[in-house]
């Protein structure tokens, strides 16, 4: 099948890329960042693309997990591989707890509520410095060790590739289970979904938990990969950036967020000198995506393709008509 071949090709490319880029540390690093963003984007897509909610507190949840992971490894001496799942599940519970009341809201109210929660989290990261070291941030975060050896260079990049590929495949699997079908029904019309026997709030909570796990795992890997985190690593602009990867690529599809992330995630690193310009660019993209191409690049490609197909039939059917006439004669 076409989709399966594409999936295998992309997975192989993701796993091979670190070894191809080994010679250029900067590009390899940007690639690693793209992989983390890919994990985040496919998680965000589950909620935004399939359940129809826009969670702007996504980065905040990633931040909770990252800070918790650092605290557990530094202060309790846990290994990264134990601290990450614990921190992730913990952060996902906190995320659900914070999000729980807002899951009754929808549309604008949900989005606003998630933005408010994100702002509260950012302020909390700044003003309760016991674990976060405030605005200064935490640096020299140790990379994870694997059998006594610290992950570094190409092997760390390859680990991130594996994590991202697993994350994308998991999302692809979830959306075609009954759970995923319920998500889609809720996205299409939550009132009708409820009448068709779907417990909308419960399914939203489940989705929210899964998505928080994606955010949290990505946050832990981000902290150990970059080695430095501060409240700014997990602020609303981060959430918006991840959202943009999903919306720009094409929400509600598996390939869309991949396209979006590969195009957009490297930009901040390639435009390092021009932070302010980067803001303007992403602002423009947000507006363009919302007003001009709500289905994203992938949706746009599909639309063009179906337009071409719709334009084609007259000639095809004319040809058929001729041949069938010929047959009748």
């Amino acid at each position: 099948m076409n989709g399966r071949h594409l999936a295998i090709a992309l997975a192989v490319a993701a796993l091979a890329a670190p070894f191809v880029l080994e010679g250029n540390r900067f590009l390899a690093f940007v690639f690693g960042i793209v992989m983390i963003n890919l994990l985040w984007a496919s998680g965000m897509n589950l909620l935004y693309g399939f359940v129809g909610l826009m969670p702007l507190m996504f980065a905040g949840i990633a931040g909770i997990a990252a800070y918790a992971m650092v605290a557990l490894t530094r202060e309790a001496g846990w290994s990264f591989w134990l601290a990450t799942p614990v921190a992730a599940v913990g952060a996902a519970f906190v995320g659900v707890l914070l999000g729980l009341p807002s899951l009754r809201l929808k549309g604008f109210y949900f989005t606003l509520c998630s933005l408010v929660i994100q702002s509260v989290l950012t302020l909390a990261f700044t003003f309760f410095p016991r674990f976060t070291n405030g605005d200064t941030g935490l640096n020299q975060i140790e990379p994870p060790a694997w059998g006594g050896v610290q992950l570094a260079g190409v092997w760390f990049d390859a680990t991130l590739s594996v994590v991202a590929v697993v994350g994308v495949l998991l999302a692809a699997w979830i959306v075609q289970t009954r759970l995923g079908q319920r998500f889609i029904a809720i996205r299409e019309d939550d009132v009708l979904a409820e009448v068709m026997g779907i417990d909308v709030v419960r399914n939203r909570i489940i989705a929210f938990f899964i998505v928080s796990l994606y955010a949290a795992v990505g946050g832990c890997f981000y902290a150990s990969y970059v080695g430095f985190i501060s409240p700014r690593s997990f602020d609303v602009l981060t959430s918006l950036g991840i959202w943009l990867c999903v919306a720009f690529g094409g929400r509600g599809t598996i390939i869309g967020p991949i396209i979006g992330t590969v195009i957009l995630a490297p930009i901040p690193y390639l435009l390092q000198e021009l932070q302010a310009f980067k803001d303007v660019l992403s602002g423009v993209l947000i507006i363009v995506v919302t007003l001009v191409m709500p289905a994203g690049i992938h949706g746009e490609i599909m639309r063009r393709r179906s337009l071409r197909r719709a334009a084609a039939p007259p000639t095809v059917s004319a040809a058929e008509a001729v041949s069938s006439n010929g047959g009748a004669r």
Binding site: R178, Q181, R182, I184, A185, M196, G197, I198
Partner: peptide, 11 residues
């Protein structure tokens, strides 16, 4: 068809 599947989700 997807609408029908959604109705059958009630299980």
């Amino acid at each position: 068809r997807k609408n029908i599947e959604a109705a059958l989700l009630l299980g």
